[in-house]
Amino acid sequence: MTQISTMPTSTMPYKNAVLDDQQLQQALKKINPKFGDFVTRVAGEAWGLPLIDQKTKALIVITVDVVNQNLLGSGTPFAAHVDMAIKQGVTRAEIEELLLFLCVYAGFNKAAASFGALDEILTD
């Protein structure tokens, strides 16, 4: 599994969580160079939309991962999205509260698996 930083690399959140994060872009290119370039362009444009702030977008992508159970293993985005959220100022406590909230709407089993994955990601 790719090692994820649990501390922001700067004191200020990125203006664009995809386009401003060179570490993320390199990780995407390691999956496949064309895939990395494509995802950077498309996701970068989506993350650049102005009405929803970067922190909220980071919480939304974590929600999508929970609902789809894209949590651990090769090619799954949950660890990258947790890292992205932390870089945007989201705390572990906020992620945990989000997972509790999602118990009601996504299902208790999905939330339980997500808590386990979160623990694994943040203790590595």
Score class of each variant (00 low, 15 high):
Met1Gln: 11
Ile4His: 15
Ile4Gly: 02
Ser5Cys: 07
Met7Cys: 12
Pro8His: 07
Pro8Ala: 06
Thr9Gly: 13
Ser10Cys: 13
Met12Pro: 02
Tyr14His: 12
Lys15Phe: 10
Leu19Gln: 14
Leu19Met: 13
Asp21His: 10
Gln22Ser: 15
Gln22Asp: 13
Gln23Ala: 15
Gln23Asn: 13
Gln23Arg: 15
Gln23Phe: 05
Leu24Lys: 08
Gln26Cys: 06
Ala27Ile: 09
Leu28Val: 02
Leu28Lys: 08
Ile31Cys: 07
Asn32Arg: 09
Pro33Arg: 01
Asp37Thr: 14
Asp37Trp: 01
Asp37Arg: 06
Val39Ala: 12
Thr40Cys: 11
Arg41Leu: 14
Ala43Thr: 01
Glu45Thr: 12
Glu45Lys: 13
Gly48Trp: 02
Leu49Asp: 04
Pro50Trp: 02
Leu51Glu: 14
Leu51Phe: 15
Leu51Ala: 15
Lys55Trp: 02
Thr56Glu: 12
Thr56Ile: 11
Leu59Asn: 05
Leu59Val: 06
Thr63Arg: 07
Thr63Gln: 04
Asp65Phe: 00
Val66Met: 04
Val66Cys: 03
Val67Tyr: 10
Asn68Thr: 13
Asn68Ile: 03
Gln69Asp: 13
Asn70Gly: 07
Leu71His: 03
Leu71Ile: 08
Gly73Pro: 13
Ser74Met: 11
Gly75Asp: 07
Gly75Ala: 01
Thr76Trp: 04
Phe78Ser: 01
Phe78Met: 03
Ala79His: 04
Ala80Asp: 05
Asp83Ala: 15
Ala85Gln: 01
Ile86Cys: 04
Ile86Lys: 02
Ile86Arg: 08
Ile86Asp: 00
Gly89Arg: 07
Val90Lys: 01
Val90Ser: 01
Val90Trp: 00
Thr91Lys: 07
Arg92Ile: 15
Ala93Trp: 04
Ala93His: 11
Ala93Gln: 15
Glu94Val: 08
Glu94Ile: 08
Ile95His: 00
Glu97Leu: 13
Leu99His: 01
Leu100Met: 14
Leu100Gly: 12
Phe101Asp: 08
Phe101Tyr: 14
Cys103His: 07
Cys103Val: 10
Val104Arg: 10
Tyr105His: 14
Ala106Asp: 02
Ala106Glu: 03
Phe108Arg: 07
Phe108Tyr: 12
Phe108Ile: 14
Asn109Leu: 12
Ser114Ile: 03
Asp119Gln: 11
Glu120Arg: 14
Glu120Asn: 10
Ile121Thr: 04
Ile121Cys: 01
Thr123His: 11
Thr123Leu: 09
